[in-house]
Design a protein around this nucleic acid. Structure first.
Lengths: 138, 138
DNA sequence: TTATGGATTGCAACCTAGTTGCATAAAAAA
DNA sequence: TTTTTTATGCAACTAGGTTGCAATCCATAA
């Protein structure tokens, strides 16, 4: 298990358990966003319970280790590269989903432009998903 | 049943059936985006089968009568105000979901600003969801 | 190093969302 | 009105996600 993994868990004051280590390592190894099913598949030889993986994701979300990326097929999750905390998830980067290979990625360098909401509206979270063809598939 | 409903079905060359009429009418009456569950609830006294409502939504999507709005709780649907066709859904407006009242709305007048994707990426669809407080709840 | 208390896991059971196949019923066309 | 085509209802199923609870594990402190 990599240093990154135990360091991260420690810094977020989470107990190091086999499931958490493996889930975090999987996010670190793969550069793309992962669904619960992806993780179940990736870690199937470790025989973690489905529920445990769900709870691990929930914990990581609450701590700000990962963030949600919803699309029309369901939810995916990706590591927060910026430092996030429970109260303040700031993910103003663009998400890209390839219609060919199915992968979803964070385009960390591409920020969502500021939007002028109508009078009375208050923004708390923003999520911009672009679907199309990625560099590999176009 | 309103004129709009039978006109719309006719213009998209869809058979007029009770379920389609009611679903379309419900979208017309409510200004907000609706989930499958919302429709089931709204039309529960008509006793349409769940599957029939799913298929109605699928048909409307394919024809370009409605479009999908995904968020972290699941899928919602809203009428396409612009004229859409099967091959070309163009929904470049912002979607807003209120964290207080839970309603999701199309902000038809607020267009998603153009995004400069990195070299090699091709956009086909774009979905911008802002979550926060709507005018009523802020 | 071991005991202990609080956090985490696994299991069973459950709920909702969404899909498929097929026989029946209803619309539109003839 | 009859035929053809399309849509519906039903049963059955898969996948995603949640809850309660007993057993287990981790970190801390003795």
């Amino acid at each position: 298990m990599e240093q990154f993994v135990s360091d991260t868990l420690k810094s977020y004051q989470l107990r190091t358990t086999a499931c958490r280590e493996n889930v975090l390592q999987t996010f670190q190894n793969r550069e793309t966003a992962l669904s619960h099913g992806d993780l179940e598949e990736a870690l199937k030889d470790r025989h973690f319970d489905r529920v445990t993986i769900y709870r691990t994701l929930k914990t990581f979300l609450e701590k700000g280790i990962i963030h949600k990326i919803p699309d029309d097929e369901g939810l995916r999750y990706a590591l927060c590269r910026e430092q996030c905390v429970e109260a303040d998830h700031h993910h103003d980067h663009v998400h890209f989903k390839c219609n060919e290979c199915g992968q979803t990625n964070c385009l960390e360098d591409l920020l969502v432009p500021p939007i002028n909401l109508p009078e009375g509206y208050q923004a708390q979270e923003i999520n911009l998903l672009i679907q199309g063809l990625c560099e590999k598939c176009s």
